[in-house]
């Protein structure tokens, strides 16, 4: 029987006090200030007047910025999809790995978390650059082949031209998948690991193939994990700023880069605040959507059990 917090009021509040203070002082108050900025107007170079205007939001809903939001959602969506496609088999494999190996495999997934994002991005750049590892190996192979052909009396190949792997949208998506993959694998693993294995055996015994079992039994049972994995991959990917800035080309700007420019170069904090809050609201909508879906899944599960 759970104890109601009313029966231990003082204990409840003393435990809650510190985190609540933290949440209010360092999260809600600063966020509230930014929220107020989004209804403000610039007065001169440094002052912002809180006029309650909706002009910043109206400006944000012009085709230019909507297009950038749309593009960011597209990149984040593609990233999330790729993370799911790559992460699901990985999570499944870890689930079925021997107990001893599990801990090590999970450690390997989490290891990149302990490295700074900037360092990881520079590492990618040193691999993908015009003089990076991949191009160096390709150039070495190219020159080797060219030498061999010349040796055999054939025409030598033309000079090696480095492949342009970086500074385009593919590089941004690759970088985002690389960075966000653990966010997808971990929740998937935690649901898949709790899965009742006897249901898989039943499915196989009753004549379903492995693929059929995967899509008709495993995926529906893991839907809660898939939902939260999608959410916590999509949200950071949507607001990503460093990856498009460093790996992207001339057309790589995402909404977070535009927000940064509003706070810095354009010195237009009210508009930057409005763009930021539209991003926050989109996150809220995503969380709410996921809550609804999860609730439905739970209801279905309860009905299934009752039936």
């Amino acid at each position: 029987m759970e104890q109601s917090w009313r029966q231990a009021r003082s204990l409840f509040f003393s435990v809650l006090g510190a985190p609540l203070f933290w949440l209010v002082a360092f999260f809600m108050v600063p966020l509230g200030v930014v929220w107020l900025y989004s209804f403000g107007e610039n007065r001169g170079l440094i002052d912002i007047a809180f006029t309650g205007t909706w002009a910043n939001y109206a400006h944000a809903f012009t085709p230019l910025y909507l297009g950038i939001f749309w593009k960011s959602m597209w990149i984040a969506g593609l990233t999330t999809f790729l993370c799911l496609v790559i992460g699901f088999p990985v999570a499944l494999a870890i689930t079925f790995a021997p107990e001893k190996a599990k801990a090590w495999l999970l450690l390997l997934v989490m290891l990149p978390f302990w490295t700074n994002l900037l360092v990881r991005t520079y590492a990618l750049m040193s691999i993908m650059g015009a003089q990076g590892l991949i191009n160096n190996i390709a150039g070495f192979a190219w020159n080797g082949a060219s030498g061999l052909m010349a040796h055999m009396g054939l025409h030598a190949l033309p000079d090696f031209q480095p492949m342009q792997l970086m500074y385009n949208n593919n590089a941004v998506v690759l970088g985002l998948v690389f960075v966000n993959l653990p966010f997808m694998i971990l929740p998937l693993y935690s649901t898949l690991d709790r899965m009742d294995r006897s249901l898989l055996e039943a499915s196989l015994d009753l004549g379903a193939g492995h693929i059929q079992t995967l899509f008709n039994v495993v995926v529906p049972m893991a839907s809660a994990g898939i939902g939260s994995g999608i959410l916590i991959t999509f949200i950071p990917a949507l607001g990503s700023y460093l990856t498009p800035d460093m790996l992207g080309g001339s057309g790589a700007q995402m909404i977070a880069n535009v927000i940064e420019n509003q706070f810095k170069g354009a010195n237009n904090w009210p508009f930057g605040a409005a763009l930021s809050f539209i991003l926050v609201y989109m996150t809220f909508i995503g969380v709410a959507l996921q809550g609804v879906l999860e609730g439905q899944a739970r209801k279905r599960e309860a009905q299934g059990r009752a039936a």
């Binding site: 950038i68 593009k71 700007q253 420019n261 170069g265 354009a266 010195n267």
Partner: peptide, 21 residues
């Protein structure tokens, strides 16, 4: 000037968006 600086920023934002389209 502040207004002009914001105008310049928006032009460059538009150019970058066109590059990505």
């Amino acid at each position: 000037g502040a207004e002009r600086a914001q105008k310049y920023e928006e032009i460059v934002t538009r150019v970058k968006a066109a590059a990505g389209a």
